[in-house]
Each structure stands twice: as C-alpha cells, then as structure tokens.
C-alpha cells in the first residue's frame, strides 16, 4: 500500500491550521471616515471570541460587514475555507452565520413563538418541523413563559434574549452577539452569561461584542481590542 506523499501531508496540516473564520484586512469607509481600517482576526471553531473597544470604535460595523449589511470597502472575509464577502445578508445567514442586533429588532406584532418560527423556516420546510425547532430554541433560552406574548410587550432583557433565540433557530455554526448584556440588571447579566456558555457548549462558535468587562472577561477565550477602527491589542 502506498503511503501518502510527504508534501501532501504538509498541505493537509496547512488546511487544518487555516482558521474557521477569518477576516483579512477588512476596511469600511463612510466617505472619508474610516469606521473600520484594516482589521484582521481569526476565530477557531468552538471559541468565544470577544471584541472590545470604546463607543464608536467600529465593533458593530465589523458585525455589519460580516453579515453584509454594509458592503466591504476593502479586504475579504472567509468562513469554512470559503470567501463569504460579496454574498448577500440572507445568503450569509444560510451559510450558517447568525447575528443579533445591539438595537433589538423584534418582529413586534408577532408572538415570541411566531418570531422564532419565522426564522426556523430557514432550515425546515414543514410547519410542524419549524414549530418544533422554534420551541426547542425557546426552551433553550428560557423564554417558554413568554412564548405567546407579543414581541412588543417584552421587557428589554427578554427582547435581547429573543434576538438570540431567533438567531439560534436558524441553526447557525457561528453566532455574532452584539451587546446582548447591555442594559440588563446584574441578575439578568448572569443569566445572559449562562446562555452564552450553553450556546458554546452546544458546539456553536461565538463572536461577541460587549461593553461589560465582567461578561467579556469571564467567557471569552480570546479578546481583540479595537479603537478608531484599528486593532490596538
């Protein structure tokens, strides 16, 4: 039996070393203002990757670039060895990157369950299946008590949690969490941390933007600090 050639093995190791998710020198200019300027980072599978920085430093813009809410000015983004920059927002979600919004965007005049069913339909066709997926996600995030409430009637902590639930229902491999603990009281923050850890344990890679240092220090495997759209640490 023939053994694989030496260089083939090397190539394979090279592939393994390649990051699960990688941003290469991404930049975004709004007119002359560089909101994000040449930021590069790599995220390994199963990690919780933290992004920190002061207000206006470009953290949310990075999310908006990853999920193609804005087009990139320069650079490229790779996910699972494939280039995803240039795809549309919904296509990126189909590839398995879910996100939550810092300024929550609940579908207000729908019940919590319907909110989550709508996003569960991404992976399943039949309604029964979508309901099952949605109920599982709601249970996972502890929103069961609010299931039949209208999304607009929820308090902020639950709205933040609904954001997470809704993106989980799209069965993401990578989840972008944008300030999910902002505006929560200490006990709600604890619950949020628990949920984020649970999501990580279920095998989903997470990139998180957070202001509350206690949150980010206690859960992140790796942290990137940015200011003025550039990496500082």
């Amino acid at each position: 039996m023939e053994h694989p050639k030496e260089d083939f093995v090397v190539l394979e190791t090279g592939n393994c070393l390649m990051a699960y998710f990688e941003a290469r020198k991404i930049s975004k200019f709004f007119g002359g203002l560089a909101a994000v300027n040449g930021v590069s980072f790599k995220v390994e599978q199963g990690q919780i990757y933290g992004l920190i920085g002061p207000n206006g430093s470009g953290k949310t813009t990075i999310f908006n670039l990853i999920n193609a809410y804005f087009p990139l000015t320069k650079g490229e983004i790779l996910f699972e060895d494939q280039k995803i920059s240039g795809l549309k927002t919904h296509q990126i979600c189909q590839r398995g990157i879910g996100r939550t919004f810092q300024i929550v965007k609940p579908l207000k005049r729908m019940s919590v369950l319907d909110n989550v069913i709508a996003s569960a339909f991404l992976r399943v066709r039949r309604k029964q299946d979508a309901v099952a997926v949605a109920e599982e996600a709601i249970e996972f995030c502890g929103l069961t008590a609010y299931k039949d409430k209208l999304a607009k009637s929820l308090p902020i902590a639950m709205r933040k949690r609904l954001e997470i639930t809704r993106s989980l229902a799209t069965k993401p491999k990578l989840l972008l969490l944008d300030e999910t603990a902002a505006g929560l009281n200490p006990s709600e923050v604890e619950q949020a941390i628990e949920i984020i850890k649970k999501i990580r344990d279920s095998g989903i890679t997470i990139v998180i933007v957070e202001h509350i240092m206690r949150v980010i220090m206690s859960i992140s495997d790796k942290i990137l600090a940015i200011n003025h759209g550039m990496v500082i640490a």
């Binding site: 999920n67 809410y69 549309k88 927002t89 919904h90 979600c93 189909q94 879910g98 996100r99 919004f101 965007k105 609940p106 579908l107 207000k108 005049r109 729908m110 319907d114 709508a118 996003s119 991404l122 809704r166 993106s167 799209t170």
Partner: peptide, 14 residues
C-alpha cells in the same frame, strides 16, 4: 409578516 415587521431583521434571519 417578518418582512413587514422589520426588513433588516428578516434579512439577517436568512
């Protein structure tokens, strides 16, 4: 209905 309620959220739900 998702599109009616929030088009950006709908996009990011795939």
């Amino acid at each position: 209905v998702s599109i009616r309620e929030d088009q950006d959220a709908a996009e990011s739900m795939g």
